[in-house]
């Protein structure tokens, strides 16, 4: 692990809340995938843990392997080395204990209504009866402000509404951890701000544990309780920041922190580009 990975929290941040039991452990994980150009190392020797109730924002520029890492946690990709453990047990494949909200809008089943999409996940993942699942689904459609659209098919909804359905579906299943893969990246700026606040509300209400991948610094600081900065090519942990009420959006410390991360991201990416090419030679 690089020496600079444990950066002392900035002045505004509060000390770490390390008392919560570990929900997810990513243990020296390296991820590789094959392309036509050869084998690419997306993530190199990354380790971190997420405590129960914690929201970890994985922040980095495109190409730092943050989405690949999230997919590995989701069980869609096997680590080349290292281990991912959920509640102490190694992750073997995809499962509803790690519900994923993807960036793409086509993650909903087009042939099921809003309530139908949520209810189907509940029946499959939690084994609820048809009636129970429907009742819970309606409740969740209401909680994301889509009560009136419960019987609408996904193709009639806007992008933001589709993401709300996906978020409602993920929360309704009550996973051990929620995995969010840049869920608001394809939305317009206004919707993005509103959805971030809504997501934050739901997280705080349910006490959900969350791994949130993003390339936007302000989003990471706003949504996360802790921010992990990844450097690209291959992805490695460059820095870690604690976020607290004092650094919420709109405060002066928020701006300071944002500027600091910005500076580190640029410095980090330059450094990693040089180091990264050496490593790629090792694997190709």
């Amino acid at each position: 692990m690089p020496a600079e990975s444990r950066v002392p929290p900035p002045t505004a941040g509060k000390p770490a809340r390390r008392s919560a039991p570990t929900a997810l452990a990513v243990d020296h994980v390296t991820l590789r995938y094959a392309t036509s150009a050869g084998i690419v190392t997306a993530v190199e020797d990354v380790s971190f843990t997420i405590g129960t109730g914690e929201r970890l924002a994985l922040l980095g520029p495109s190409g730092c392997g943050k989405s690949t890492l999230l997919r590995a946690v989701g069980g869609f990709l096997k680590p080349a080395s290292g281990e991912i453990r959920l509640g102490g047990l190694p992750v073997k494949g995809p499962g509803p204990d790690r519900m994923v909200v993807f960036q793409e809008f086509d993650q909903l089943l087009p042939w099921r209504t809003v309530a139908g999409n949520i209810a189907f996940a509940l029946r499959r993942a939690r084994g609820l009866s048809r009636a129970e699942a429907h009742a819970v689904a309606l409740d969740w459609a209401g909680r994301v402000g889509l009560a009136k659209f419960a019987d609408a098919y996904p193709h009639t909804l806007s992008g933001g509404m589709k993401q709300r359905v996906a978020i409602a579906r993920a929360f309704a299943v009550q996973p051990a951890i929620l995995l969010m893969d840049e869920p608001f990246a394809a939305l317009d700026a206004l919707s993005r701000r509103r959805m971030q606040d809504e997501l934050l509300g739901l997280c705080e209400e349910t006490g959900a544990t969350c791994l949130f991948v993003t390339h936007a610094i302000d989003e990471a600081l706003h949504v996360g309780t802790r921010v992990l900065v990844l450097s690209p090519h291959p992805g490695r942990i460059a820095a870690e920041y604690e976020v607290s009420e004092a650094t919420r959006r709109g405060t002066a410390p928020f701006g300071l922190l944002e500027a600091e991360i910005q500076a580190r991201l640029f410095a980090g990416s330059r450094g990693a580009d040089e180091g990264g090419s050496d490593h790629e030679d090792d694997h190709v």
Partner: peptide, 18 residues
Amino acid sequence: VPPTLRMAGRNIGLSGPS
């Protein structure tokens, strides 16, 4: 079938015949 939809399906526990 879009890869995201496939992943979403496997995510909620669909496998094999289902």
